[in-house]
Design a protein around this nucleic acid. Structure first.
Lengths: 343, 343
DNA sequence: AGGCAAAATGAAATGCATTGCAATAGGTGT
DNA sequence: ACACCTATTGCAATGCATTTCATTTTGCCT
């Protein structure tokens, strides 16, 4: 037995803490402390241990560590890749959100488990936590159905959601002030003295509904006979928007203002409308959403609503950590501002 | 002691395999086998165990499992988020690649550890493997320096890379046939009888160099006095490309054909050139790369080179798995095709 | 020099599941 | 009824690091 252990030690990889302890002529607990930066170990000893560990190419077995500590140091981030081809996810906006979350988690030295396979219902999410595969969950993009989230709350699973921040969610949500976003778009249109507005988006998504409501509120306040129509884009991809837009424009009177749920959708609108002889900003005002990089370089440069993407990541993470520590953090709403360009 | 165990069992969460064994009136190994789908267990017994486990909300502790099995069932995917703001990563193309990898890993029931913090040098990568935090690595986007990859090979770390597939890499690389991509663009230009070509991209990136070389080869073959200039875009973001392009166009004769390293860059070119009074396709032919969705809807619709993004994911994963199993899979080159649009 | 606090270190228990090997039970062939 | 095979199941060892508690060592005060 001791025999085997010694043999192992001689191999480059595959040695354990006992081996290091022997080589550094200290006990296992001391090695553990030295490696974890505990102050209970003499600096000279630590240096020796570190040196031996380095020489052996030793790294603490994370699984044993997690097992013992009963904490995984891992957060699962759920991105709905499934609907990727649907276009929503491909949006650079989602990517920025992910980058923000990633960075915030890095700072806290947490690992990201990305959309683990089979995490489709509340039970599997609860299992992931119970099995200590992750300490908490972050849902990005409200593909997440409300009913599942409610179940998760009941199961006491720690999670936060990027999405609509409504009255009193049972869980912690972080999202932009979508109603304000809608209002900003509306004001842009009012300033241009437009009458026939068109909202493009699927208002079954709460986030998008709020934007719509903001837009409508401004139309009402303006009190000048503004008409707001809705073009319901269930399939939120370029192609999806293009097809519904093409059909709509051939059956309806042309709008003089369009508010699209994303810049991507705005681009689709521009393309379809151009084919119908309508050019922005000559024939209609246009406001998109998310301020993705290409929006600034499109023809015309797209006026859009910007969200605080990067901040979103750190807030989501902060709230989740509080939740994991047993607190009950409140939902948070982020700022939104309009970037006025050619359209 | 037994006391404690029993108390625990009564709690909804936090029970272990022993508890389930007791409740199901079998031994721990039997529970293990039942849960892992072993055929060494009687079906009636399995059903009973499953039922008890479900009732207790029990899920096998993944960390204990991984510790024992000495396999993590996890693959680390390294995306250079750091250069995100640099624009390279924000490219929807990367996202598609990630989606492809994600899907392929899901199929094999592997978890994705996304760009773990601090994974910056060969040592930390080796440590990640040694500590059994992951069984292998996938590098997406050649932010990965060659020298580090070489060190990783020496350290016998299992990994694969998305990037340039050159002569005899010491490691397994998967990438598109970039030279072909360049040739396809060149042929498009030849067909349009252009003379002054401009290549936009940083040829210090091997992938991009190959595209350049393909383009140049076609120019030579055409043998009709074609001149190929290079606009070296070190900062690959929109803004970066815009600024170098603006400077270039004010100091040089206008090209009649432009091949950009990405659709994103192509959009930047369109925007800058338009300001200089040049409009595609009237004044110049333009070919982008990646076929990102907005390319089709831009003004003009951008001719571009398409890569087999989705396939890339599954091939990368397949090769990596072979590598983990001790084999030495060969690099693979994927198809590339040109999508001709307005430009 | 005696005594006590502080610093450093070690022994042993602990967390949880998997697996090789042994053991038991139920069945079949002769 | 005996030998033997198969299907199930359990025992005990194992993988690895952390943590509590006790112990030793060192430093400082009087």
């Amino acid at each position: 037995m001791k025999q085997r252990s010694k043999q192992r030690g001689s191999l480059a990889m595959g040695c354990n803490m006992d081996d290091i302890a022997r080589l550094a002529k200290v006990s296992k607990p001391t090695v553990s402390r030295a490696l974890s930066g505990s102050h209970l170990v003499n600096e000279a000893t630590r240096a020796r241990v570190l040196e031996v560990a380095r020489a052996q190419g030793y790294a603490v077995n994370r699984n044993a560590q997690k097992l013992r500590q009963a904490r995984s140091g891992t957060i699962a981030v759920i991105l709905d890749f499934g609907s990727h081809r649907g276009g929503r996810i491909g949006d650079p906006f989602m990517f920025e959100l992910l980058a923000g979350v990633s960075e915030a988690l890095s700072v806290r030295n947490q690992d990201i488990l990305l959309s683990p396979p089979g995490l489709v219902d509340a039970q599997s999410c609860a299992d992931l936590i119970a099995s200590r595969g992750a300490d908490g969950l972050i849902f990005l993009g409200q593909g997440s159905q409300e009913t599942m989230l409610t179940e998760l709350v009941r199961a006491d699973v720690p999670f936060v959601v990027w999405g609509a921040v409504s009255r009193n969610n049972a869980y912690c949500a972080v999202g932009s002030d979508n109603a304000l976003g809608g209002r900003l778009a509306g004001k842009h249109f009012v300033g241009r003295e437009t009458r026939r507005w068109l909202f493009v988006g699927n208002i079954e998504h709460e986030e998008i509904l709020l934007r719509y409501e903001g837009l409508v509120a401004v139309a009402k306040e303006a009190n000048s006979g503004i008409e707001v129509n809705t073009l319901r884009a269930v399939d939120m991809s370029y192609a999806g928007v293009c097809s519904v837009a093409a059909e709509w424009i051939s059956n309806n009177e042309a709008p003089d203002a369009v508010f699209a749920f994303s810049d991507t959708a705005a681009m689709a609108i521009i393309s379809v409308f151009r084919d119908a002889g309508l050019v922005a900003p000559r024939d209609y005002a246009l406001v998109g959403y998310n301020n993705i990089p290409p929006a600034a370089h499109f023809t015309p440069a797209i006026t859009t609503i910007e969200q605080e993407t990067h901040l979103a990541g750190s807030i989501l993470v902060e709230k989740l950590m509080q939740r994991i520590d047993g607190a009950n953090p409140k939902s948070a709403m982020l700022q939104t501002r309009i970037i006025i360009r050619e359209s």
